[in-house]
């Protein structure tokens, strides 16, 4: 199955008020890749994501998910294949309880009640939220909401997971939990984020959008080391790649060892 390939060709989108959100975007993402889409505010990231499951129609250009070209008739298939996690979990969790919310998709797929129950339990356990199953979504914390939102999508067993700003508004612990969860997902992952450290940790490939165009597309480290490119696109190196603000020494990407001097001068011990 080549279902898990995402191909975008010369995609252009103009909103009804005349704003050109995407000028000309092309890329191809193959099975199992984990790709970060980064760019400044208004670069066209969200518009691009909304095309991937057919919520927006391209003004011109086309999109293929696996063998299926995106069109009105193929929408149900595309939406089953591409699971979309929205930025604000309050938009995604609209049913009375967590269980109902996670079951919403499987029921729409026409699964039988018993299968739905089993699927919901599996998925909730996967994201570590099974104890929340009977709670209403408005009583959950931000991190819990986000995990349940991911569960609502995973319950439809998508082949491609698309996420808009997954770590937005989470506390450090919840952010770590969520990153571990994304890392464990076996299939293709595409997400937009301003959390460049997360992109650095989770993605082997980065697509940089700038004013509606693909400005760069390549291995993560390569792009994050290109300071000129980053500055052009109103971006900067992930914090973990920048020098320590206290001693000035650099540190390795992904290394968790803090600068020893930062403790000495931070005043904690005085």
């Amino acid at each position: 199955m080549s279902h898990h390939i995402v191909e975008v060709k010369n995609l252009r989108h103009v909103y009804s008020d005349g704003t050109v959100a995407l000028k000309d975007a092309s890329f191809r993402i193959t099975h199992g890749e984990s790709v970060g889409i980064i760019g400044a505010n208004g670069a066209g990231k969200s518009t691009l994501l909304l095309h991937l499951n057919g919520y927006l129609e391209p003004t011109s250009g086309n999109i293929r998910i696996g063998d299926i070209p995106l069109s009105k008739g193929t929408l149900p298939d595309i939406r089953r294949t591409v699971g979309m996690v929205f930025q604000d979990p309050d938009d995604q969790l609209f049913m009375p309880t967590v269980f109902d919310d996670v079951a919403f998709g499987p029921f729409n797929l026409g699964m039988a009640v018993a299968d739905v129950e089993q699927r919901v339990t599996e998925v909730l356990e996967l994201v570590g939220a099974n104890h929340l199953r009977d709670k209403p979504p408005y009583n959950l914390s931000g991190g819990e909401k986000k995990r349940v939102a991911i569960a609502t999508v995973l319950s439809m067993s998508p082949d491609i997971l698309v996420m808009d700003e997954p770590t937005n508004g989470l506390d450090p612990f919840a952010r770590r939990q969520l990153m571990a969860l994304i890392r464990d997902f076996k299939h293709t992952r595409i997400f937009t984020s301003h959390d460049l450290d997360m992109v650095l940790e989770l993605c082997e490939r980065v697509i940089v959008l700038h004013e509606g165009e693909v400005w760069a597309d390549g291995p993560t480290l390569e792009i994050f080391n290109n300071e000129k490119l980053l500055a052009e696109c109103r971006l900067e190196k992930p914090l973990s790649m920048q020098g320590c603000p206290i001693c000035g020494s650099g540190r390795l990407a992904g290394s968790a060892i803090p600068c020893p001097k930062s403790y000495a001068s931070s005043g904690f011990d005085s």
Binding site: Y55, R79, F86, D91, A103, G105, V113
Partner: peptide, 22 residues
């Protein structure tokens, strides 16, 4: 706008106008 986003989220999970409650 929120309503539009919710509608999007519903469509993304295969909503076709019917609610299945059990």
């Amino acid at each position: 706008q929120r309503a539009e986003r919710i509608h999007m989220a519903m469509l993304a999970r295969g909503f076709t106008g019917a609610f299945h409650a059990h």
